[in-house]
Nucleic acid binder design. Structure first.
Lengths: 205, 205
DNA sequence: TAGATTGTTAATCGATTAACAATC
DNA sequence: TAGATTGTTAATCGATTAACAATC
């Protein structure tokens, strides 16, 4: 398969959300022009993105909303569940843990780890926070797919190394630090400071 | 001035963090090659990004860490403070509110708004959560620079319209919904679902 | 059928990188 | 001075868009 850019993947996520909305509103078909309008892009972009994966439309009519949503669900791997481990049980981790939208999409936290003795042994919902020292043993016995890092930046690389060692193949990092992962492991960074600083830049000029 | 791409601005944020680290470690000078290595990019990219704003280096020697950090601080508008209003006092908003890093960078929450009667009147730190009905009046009297949206997606566009009406020029949106802002208002979206779905895609292929 | 809209190619646009003269 | 490294130009790469034949 042709190499798919992250730009395309992020737009697929956007289409997925738009189609979910439309499906709920009982809209049956949609043109690339309409979909583009909702996503704030061009219709050529929509058709190009979809064309990497197949011919989902009907000339003259457009796309069937439910069908296209199902195709994108499959493409994005959202037709299955993903097990996650959270490293760093702080307030950001807490917000992510209780975020219903992730569960709806099939992303479940299965383990919570922290270094804070005051937190270890306490529960979020009915999931206990474990000592990060136990993580290697626990995750080797019972692997997860994705590691979510909400530790302070100083700890982040060590956690990545641990995650890689226990076979985690996807990492979502919130720590504001450049991280190194080996070939075959996917890393996505969410840096809230960058978003604010980019706003600050726009407001300054 | 030449149009600066958001790619460049985001990398400036990255340089800013790297230089802050280096300054703390008492490193005095750095070459574009080293800076690039830390940021995971090429040295040409670093020099190109900086060249939009001036000549900050010395041929043969590289860049003075503190000097370059100060220049970038100024470019990004981080040599001043920014007042923010939070719309949606949920767990994500709470995590942002108590995040020390934003304060260090000069971003301060000055108002908290919610619709939930159970939350209105309670305090985070010593800042009271106000009814969103009061927002227009309050923010017209005492404007802020940035609106941070952590409401459910259904409410997000109304909040944007309110924010625009009271003169807010920068919006940081966490609601997973495409928002419309008029010319002259900057909008940055942080969509956590997109990040997870992009990981899911990578893990699926 | 006539009108609408896809899927795809080729053109365009913009971002990244290689290369090197300038110069510390 | 000789070696190192910047600032900048030109080449390359890759993403977006315009255009249109195919076809429902």
């Amino acid at each position: 398969m042709e190499k798919i850019s992250d730009f395309t993947v992020r737009r697929l996520s956007s289409y997925y959300r738009i189609l979910s909305d439309l499906e709920q509103k009982k809209v049956l078909t949609i043109s690339s022009a309409k979909l583009a309008e909702f996503g704030g892009i061009t219709s050529a972009q929509v058709r190009k993105d979809l064309s990497y994966f197949g011919n989902f439309g009907t000339r003259g009519l457009g796309y069937n909303v439910s069908e296209l949503k199902n195709e994108i669900t499959r493409i994005l791997g959202l037709n299955q569940t993903w097990g996650m481990a959270l490293f760093g049980a702080g307030s950001l981790g807490n917000a992510l843990f209780f975020h219903q939208g992730f569960r709806d999409d099939g992303f479940f936290f299965r383990y919570l780890f922290d270094v804070d003795l005051g937190k270890i042994g306490t529960k979020w919902g009915n999931l206990e926070i474990l000592a990060v020292d136990k993580a290697k043993e626990v995750l080797k016995r019972d692997p997860v797919d994705i590691g979510v890092i909400t530790t302070p930046k100083e700890a982040a690389q060590d956690i990545v190394d641990l995650a890689v060692e226990v076979g985690i193949k996807g990492i979502l990092n919130f720590a504001p630090r450049e991280l190194v992962v080996p070939e075959g492991v996917s890393l996505r960074n969410v840096n809230l400071a960058v978003a604010l600083e980019s706003l600050s830049f726009s407001l300054s000029i």
